[in-house]
Amino acid sequence: MPTIVSVDDSTVPGEGSSRLLLLVSSDNKHIVVEEDIMSRSRFISKQVEGFEATSQRHAILLPFSSFVLNKVIEYCSHYRGYYLLEDDPDAAPPGRSPVREWDQEFLDVDRNMLLRIIKAAHYLEIKSLVGSCARAIADMIRGKTTEEMREILGVENDFTPEEEHSPSSKCTG
């Protein structure tokens, strides 16, 4: 559960039709964003519903940096008002369709940043962004041997010899 702190109205402007949200990143940066932009996030939507029930205004504390948060806001702003099939709760499992061109450019970031974005998108429950990041990671390891994958992603072979060579594990590759 996120930590929610009460804020006074002067902190969060924008009463009325164009409501604003105050998002607080892990590095304590306060970012004001239109609620409409963040409506793609199911997590934020649920928080906002909670605010309406208590008729209190809150800031939403998020467990990732402002740099990552700003990237997510950029994504949500770009697709503001667009229907993306992947965000549909009933959408089919991922298929072979390629990453959208804009997403490709948007996700042309270093490996660690990509992993931070997907984690943030997962936390915020933005299915389309999670999907695009997952495709980008899949693309990143495409054509690599297991050794190369380990090297790229900073993991080591931690199988026991039995796990690696026993007949029962043969069918894992």
Binding site: I141, T146, M149, V155, N157, D158, F159, E163, T172, G173
Partner: peptide, 11 residues
Amino acid sequence: IWLSHVCRRWR
């Protein structure tokens, strides 16, 4: 299926 060869968590 090669992915399951990288490490335990991937498997």
